[in-house]
């Protein structure tokens, strides 16, 4: 490997890290925007809020659609959910994060991707 190639690798890694951090920041901003839009009262975090069918029934339509899609897919990114619901990725990302705040969904970051899923405790 030449000296130039070695030097070229570092900036690339730095850029990747910046991109990753920007994405994280973007997600946090989406949550803040969502909280401001709805007012904090409407989305108070719950300590334990299983996503059962009665909860799904009592949800507003826009959140139910997102939640049901995650139930069906098992584990999905905002992109994958958006493909199913045919809504914009940013919109889905907002709804997914709102469901996480409400403790109905869990979120896990793998590399650059954020995965959303229903709690799997004790499941096969």
């Amino acid at each position: 490997m030449t000296k130039q190639e070695v030097l070229g690798r570092k900036p690339l890694k730095i850029l990747e890290k910046i991109k990753e951090n920007l994405e994280k920041l973007n997600e946090k901003m989406e949550i803040i925007i969502e909280l401001q839009k709805r007012g904090r009262k409407g989305v108070q975090p719950l300590p334990d809020a299983p996503l059962d069918v009665m909860t799904l029934l009592s949800m507003p339509d826009h959140l139910r659609k997102t939640a049901m899609t995650v139930c069906r897919l098992g584990r999905a990114t905002a992109d994958e959910v958006a493909q199913q619901t045919r809504r914009a990725r940013a919109v889905e990302s907002g709804y997914l994060n709102q469901l996480v705040i409400m403790s109905h969904l869990k979120k896990e970051r793998v590399g650059r991707k954020a995965y959303f899923y229903v709690e799997k405790e004790d499941q096969e």
Binding site: P50, D52, V53, M54, C71, G74, V118, E121, Q123, E124
Partner: peptide, 14 residues
């Protein structure tokens, strides 16, 4: 309970 029902839904979907 609700938690069990949630897991049951997961198993039906599977």
């Amino acid at each position: 309970d609700r938690k069990w029902e949630m897991r049951a839904l997961g198993r039906l979907l599977a």
